[in-house]
Amino acid sequence: MGCTATGGGAGGGRAESSCVRLVEYESRTYADVANTPITAGERLGSVTFTPCDDMGGRSGGRVEPPIKAMAYRVEGLDVDVAIAVGDDADDAELFAVKSGSGPNSGSGLPPEVEKFIDAS
């Protein structure tokens, strides 16, 4: 899991870290796309969650080991742009390759994934 910092609030408090869930599959990195209904299809194989250092290097040298999960094909999307990840197909969640070329490129999602989300 990769990390991003979130704001410190109106009172100027300290910033908090939150992990963006990232997985590696066939030399591509996919990021979690929250709250998108999918139908997971064919089992593709194992993926590895990238460990998160949400302590900003203050973990005393302790590093989380990579976590394994299963990847599945997402019905309606090519594996080059998105996969489903979970312990089994019924609980799998959408993960997509980040890109900057779509009409809503601020989302960082490939255009095919944006269309898929809009249609769901």
Rank of each mutant, 00 (worst) to 15 (best):
D90L: 12
A119E: 13
D87V: 12
D80T: 05
G9C: 13
V74H: 04
A71V: 00
R58N: 14
K115P: 00
S99E: 13
A96Y: 09
T4L: 15
P66S: 10
E114P: 00
P103F: 06
P51Y: 12
T29M: 08
G60A: 12
E112L: 01
L44W: 10
Y72N: 09
I67Q: 09
G9W: 07
G8P: 09
T4K: 15
G76R: 01
S27Y: 04
I38C: 04
G13S: 15
L109A: 03
G76C: 07
G102C: 04
L77N: 03
V74W: 10
R62V: 14
A71P: 11
A71F: 09
L22R: 12
V63L: 02
I38R: 03
D32G: 03
L44E: 10
D78E: 13
A71Q: 03
E114T: 03
L109T: 01
I67N: 00
S18R: 13
R21C: 04
G60Y: 06
F116R: 00
R28G: 00
A69T: 01
A82V: 07
E64V: 02
A71T: 05
V113F: 11
G2F: 02
D54Y: 08
L44H: 05
V47F: 07
E42L: 14
E64K: 09
D53V: 09
Y25Q: 02
R21W: 11
C52S: 14
V33W: 03
S17N: 13
V20G: 04
E24R: 07
S27H: 05
S107E: 06
K98D: 10
E114D: 01
G12K: 10
M70T: 14
R58I: 11
T39M: 14
L22A: 05
V47T: 05
I67M: 06
E26D: 15
T6Y: 14
G13P: 09
S101Y: 02
C19Y: 04
K98L: 13
L94F: 04
A96E: 08
T6N: 11
N35C: 08
G8K: 06
G56S: 14
S99P: 03
